[in-house]
């Protein structure tokens, strides 16, 4: 593991936009005074004429993006998850979602790993909010390679897309030269019959680590990377749940309304099995380094291992 490269998924967002700029000559990238942090700044430097800074007015940005999309242009609107999904929820719902306009929302700094900024900026609710919007595609990539590929794929989706990225540098485990992003398809990262671990975002790498350690102890886990939370790859989730009969969901998001809830919604109706959810419990975060907070709130391979052992008892 010595030569593992670490990179934040927001960097994949920035790189994906640059790549798209080469192909879509009239695309527009919008931001709300966070271009450096969201990594849209690179696009701004490369294509200054196609970059719009809306200032600190996220609701306005979302409705403007809707107007731009209505004229047939590819448009990305960027901010922190807290403001893109939280503050601007109703603009996303009514200006973008209801008319099903193909605005691509790039939401960075999602989850507890925002770190030192503390609870006001740690958005653990965005997946829950976005899932309720009919026709919204939700993508939560696991590493920077997957993030970049997802951004490029999002350009072709005929409808609104919410893309969730992190601030914190995490291991890059996908190989950019071979990785193919398939929208709505779970990625099987480990095969096992004893338990299913369904993970998303930066928890995917922790899930793989957990599966490796569990294997040494004779516990074989199926590991699914759910980069597309909506539409959920129900087929893959059900197939694995049928095989193992026990499911652990893992996400850097509230246990209310996120991946865990989406998996439970699916399994409760179509394949009822025992499920345990790992996520942010019903509470706010606090300031601290990303690593400290991830450990504190149980976003770790260790906690996955512990939870797996509880469920297979």
């Amino acid at each position: 593991m010595a030569d593992v490269i670490k990179k934040a998924t927001r960097d994949g967002y920035g790189e994906g936009l640059i790549e798209l700029g080469k192909k879509y000559k009239d695309m527009i990238v919008m931001d709300a005074d966070l271009a450096g942090a969201t990594r849209t700044g690179k696009f701004k430097s490369a294509y200054p004429e196609q970059f719009i800074d809306c200032g600190i007015a996220e609701g306005n940005m979302m409705s403007i993006a809707a107007g731009i999309a209505s004229t047939g242009r590819l448009v990305f609107a960027s901010s922190f998850a807290m403001f893109a999904a939280g503050r601007a929820f109703e603009q996303v719902r009514n200006s973008i979602g209801y008319p099903h306009l193909p605005v691509k929302i790039g939401a960075t700094h999602a989850g507890i790993s925002v770190g030192e900024d503390g609870a006001t900026h740690q958005c653990n609710e965005d997946i829950a909010l976005m899932r309720t919007i009919p026709g919204m595609t939700i993508i939560n990539p696991a590493d920077a390679v997957e993030a970049k590929a997802a951004v490029i794929a999002a350009a072709e989706i005929d409808g609104p897309v919410y893309m969730r990225f992190g601030r914190f540098a995490v291991p890059v485990f996908n190989d950019e030269s071979t990785y193919k992003f398939e929208l709505g398809k779970a990625v099987k990262l480990n095969d096992g019959d004893d338990v299913t671990i369904v993970a998303t975002g930066l928890m995917v790498n922790e899930a793989v680590k957990a599966a490796e350690i569990l294997k040494q102890e004779g516990i074989n886990a199926d590991v699914l990377n759910i980069h597309t939370i909506k539409p959920l790859d129900e087929e893959a989730v059900i197939a694995s749940a049928q095989k193992t009969g026990k499911v652990v969901t893992v996400e850097e998001h509230s246990v209310i309304g996120g991946l865990g809830s989406a998996v439970c919604d699916c399994l409760a109706e179509k394949c009822p099995v025992k499920v345990k959810k790992i996520g942010m419990n019903d509470e706010y975060g606090m300031s601290g380094s990303a690593a400290e907070l991830l450990e504190h709130y149980g976003f770790s391979a260790d906690n996955i291992i512990k939870t797996v052992k509880e469920i297979i008892k």
């Binding site: 004429e49 409705s63 107007g67 731009i68 999309a69 242009r73 200006s95």
Partner: peptide, 25 residues
């Protein structure tokens, strides 16, 4: 109908989007 509206305040923003898109093009 060029934009879905009804939630007050959002239509003028969408109109801004249409206007700036036209100018940029």
């Amino acid at each position: 109908v060029d934009m879905s509206t009804g939630s007050l305040g959002q239509g003028i923003s969408a109109a801004c989007g249409m206007a700036i898109s036209g100018k940029m093009a």
